[in-house]
Design a protein around this nucleic acid. Structure first.
Lengths: 234, 234
DNA sequence: GACGAACTCGAACAGTGTGCGAGTCAGCTT
DNA sequence: AAGCTGACTCGCACACTGTTCGAGTTCGTC
């Protein structure tokens, strides 16, 4: 079966007030943002659109296809600066921060992003512009791919686990402090005999979690970019 | 059916063989490894164990709990060297490679790892030993956490996307070459107007995918470690 | 008014995770 | 030897899932 991107879109919509693919994708995004990945079902989605569940299948082949569409919509939110503005490093930094922000904004991403490879137009656009950034920096040949790959891997790795953490916090429905208390108590039980881990948890006990995670992201990203930059000037 | 009188008295007092949690976890792992995340259902799992589906629920609270168990089992496969052997960098390198290998061995991991935070004993052990590595390297305070976090984020980011790619390849059921041909053709359509992406794809056209991905991993990991090392000696 | 294309949707199917309560079994206590 | 108890199994049932099918409705065009 062809993927949804290469399949020709259905011709011209009628004048009658009718569902459209865009409309469906938008509603899916809303449903996912408010209820999370587990909260998306074709019937719920249809209800939100005041339509029959099976009507959706005229506009979209399967639920997975729909996920492809909505994931690509997220990729569409990610701004990647032009390669010749402000230097490559600032550009990559912006790409990284924008990508992370998008994942955190849509906390269901980690749970669905690995179901299928992302090859939608917006994903391709982002990748392409990312490559341009590293090419402009002076990377050549496969190193262009490797460098971008490293940054994307780090950003997804960081953002995914953070988003997943947040999502499970939201599911628990407690305030951050309550949840923190519970988790830290569990951690106490779970980490007996692992002093390094206990210390690490103690470090988290004090500070605002949000800030800690931002710092962790910046620290890792800066380190990685330093390492890449070194490869460049060698 | 025989009458009560002719039926043999007792089927011998052999100790009743019963399910055990370990047994269930092991079977789950096998099922996941052979059929992937979507192929795991409580009924199929029960069939593999010659038991009723609902019997499982005496040993395990929910399917998600079961996933937690089997994920932690994977964490248990990851060897992390002692901090005082062979230097921190070699140790981290080994941790990273072992973690990646485990994810690639169990290609369903990306699809389930973000459903719940991993706080099983083996995950904690791995984290703890990872922290010890960076502590021994000379990192202090929160930088210990940040450094390990960066490495884990990169490794998961890289391994997850690679494993997911492979999994979708397996699902398609084609040989790598066939699949490659299809994807590259699709890519042609999808990347019109994105020259950087076309170049990038061309670079992949020639070489063995496996090797390319290994190189990409090493490149990123080395870069990151360089960046971290720089922070250390400053 | 007729036709065909665009679109909707109810009924149905096979499958899912899981709660409930009845049932079986081994070993212990009387 | 009988009976109890706690460990364990499991069929039934429920609410829910993604998706197919085919019949039905609305439209623009002849």
């Amino acid at each position: 079966m062809e993927s949804i991107w290469t399949r020709p879109q259905r011709p011209a919509a009628a004048a009658r007030e009718t569902l459209s693919r865009d409309q469906i994708v938008k509603a899916t995004m809303e449903l996912l943002d408010t209820e999370g990945a587990a909260g998306l079902s074709m019937r719920k989605l249809a209800a939100r659109l005041d339509s029959g569940a099976t009507s959706l299948y005229w506009h979209v082949q399967t639920k997975d296809d729909l996920l492809d569409l909505v994931i690509d919509e997220v990729y569409g939110e990610i701004d990647v600066p032009d390669a010749d503005l402000a230097g490559w490093r600032a550009g990559v930094l912006l790409l990284a921060h924008n990508l992370r922000a998008a994942v955190l904004r849509h906390g269901w991403i980690p749970e669905v992003i690995y179901i299928r490879p992302s090859i939608g137009p917006n994903a391709v656009r982002m990748g392409s512009r990312g490559l341009a950034l590293f090419e402009a920096a002076g990377f050549t040949d496969t190193e262009i791919d490797y460098a971008l790959g490293a940054v994307l891997a780090f950003v997804f790795g960081n953002a995914n686990s953070q988003a997943a953490w947040r999502a499970s916090l939201r599911r628990a429905g407690t305030t951050e402090d309550e949840w923190k208390a519970v988790v830290l108590k569990e951690a106490d039980q779970v980490t007996t005999g692992h002093q390094e881990m206990r210390d690490s948890i103690d470090r988290r006990r004090v500070v605002d979690a949000e800030r800690l995670q931002n710092e962790q992201f910046s620290y890792g990203l800066d380190s990685l970019l330093d390492g890449l930059e070194k490869r460049l000037t060698r």
